Amino acid sequence: MTPYRVPLAARLVDSLANQAPHLPDAAVDGDLLDPDVNRAYQALRATAIGAEDLWAHCKSMLDGVYLDGFVIIEAAPLLDLGPEHGPRAATALLTWLATPLNVLDATPLWKPLGTDPEQVTSTGYQPFQIDIVNATRPPDYLAQWCLRPDPRGGGHTLISHLRRAVLRLDDEERRLLTDRAFTHGDFAGLRGVGDEYRPFPVLDGREHRDGFVRFDARILPGMDSREAHTSAARALEREVIAGQRRFLLARGDLIVINQHVCAHGRERLGPDQATVHDDEHRMLHQMFLRARRGSTHTSLGLARR
């Protein structure tokens, strides 16, 4: 077992399987998981054999002093619980780490990330980013659950440690990235992530151990290539790519990413996606999470509920 890859112990799977039919559905109250539901899921953590060990290992990988900023939980046994009980068990497991966050009204906590073979944005390379970069309070964590890998063998998940990338920049590049000189995307309809931040700085001026690196490489094509801020952002992108790690998520792999630490991306899917049957295309489900009061990120003013 590599430190970032964590299998679910058999007794923990048994506990989740036995309790999932009796757990409440993952209803939301405003933008966060309903408190009563959250309490029920937390009670399961207190009684399930192996839950505390899983929690401690995941938190050390996500938030520890020598953190990698991500962890992959081998959660395929939860998929085998079926389309109702499996997602409920996975949601309960994630609540042990942070609180599920719903950023769009009338949408499910688990957002499907399917494959449209006609869309290059769906099948092509996806550059490094943190999600909802243009908000004052982006989600603290991002979870992606692989229901089906790409049958053509593509779509490797990419992870890169942003803070380490920043340390490899020179002083002038870092100074330029603290300027509010960057914009990205639409903000309409979002909730639970603060206000729109436009323009925003990539670096917030904090020490690298605590700072938030507000990076999304998708902003770069629209920037003036002759401008100094563009050059600094391109330099950061090069360092992010230089430090990348790649993983091919297997069926059931549940990756959790600390957005204060890591950016994520994805390599292009395998060839001939148009010949893949609809029910065989790569499919992930995605959920955002908010750090709890008293967590690592509370001191940054980012976890207020």
Rank of each mutant, 00 (worst) to 15 (best):
H57T: 14
R5A: 11
A250C: 10
Q129R: 07
H297C: 05
P83R: 06
A27S: 14
D195Y: 05
L93K: 01
G69C: 05
M283Y: 09
G86C: 06
L78G: 00
M61L: 15
V261Q: 05
T107R: 14
D31H: 11
A181D: 12
D29L: 05
S160H: 06
P199I: 11
D63G: 03
I255F: 10
T275F: 10
W55N: 10
V261T: 09
M287K: 09
L67Y: 00
G194L: 10
R304M: 13
R206C: 10
P35D: 08
V65H: 12
V261C: 11
V65L: 13
A232S: 05
Q119C: 03
S122M: 05
E118T: 15
S231F: 09
Q119T: 10
L169C: 11
L147T: 04
C262R: 01
V202F: 02
S231I: 12
N18A: 13
L190G: 13
M61G: 09
Y141S: 11
P100V: 03
T2S: 14
N258R: 02
S122K: 09
G243P: 04
D14Q: 08
T298N: 07
W96H: 04
E227I: 07
N258I: 01
D216V: 06
P112A: 10
Y66D: 15
A135V: 10
V193Q: 08
L249T: 01
D253F: 06
M61C: 13
S15L: 03
P151M: 07
E172S: 06
I72Y: 12
A75Y: 00
M223E: 12
A165P: 05
P21V: 04
C58G: 02
I241K: 09
A235P: 01
T123H: 10
A40K: 13
T275N: 12
P117F: 12
W145D: 01
F247E: 11
A10H: 12
L109D: 04
A242Y: 11
L44P: 02
R282P: 10
H281L: 14
G265E: 11
L248G: 08
V133C: 07
H85P: 01
L269W: 14
P149G: 13
H156T: 04
V103D: 07
D63S: 09
T178G: 07
T157I: 06
R137H: 14
A26D: 02
E239A: 07
D68E: 11
V28G: 04
A90W: 02
V202E: 01
G30K: 13
E280A: 15
D195M: 08
P149I: 09
Q119S: 10
V202R: 05
G30H: 06
V37W: 02
Q259C: 04
T183P: 04
E237H: 07
A40N: 07
A27W: 01
A92V: 01
L33V: 02
M61Q: 15
V133A: 12
V193P: 06
I257H: 07
W96E: 02
V193M: 14
L44A: 00
V261S: 08
A48E: 00
E172F: 08
L62C: 06
G82V: 09
L54C: 13
R218M: 08
R226S: 15
Y41E: 06
T298I: 05
L248K: 08
Q144A: 14
H281Y: 09
A135S: 15
W145E: 00
R293A: 08
S122A: 10
A143E: 03
L169N: 04
V256A: 00
D171V: 07
S60A: 15
A217I: 07
A90L: 10
L23C: 03
T178I: 02
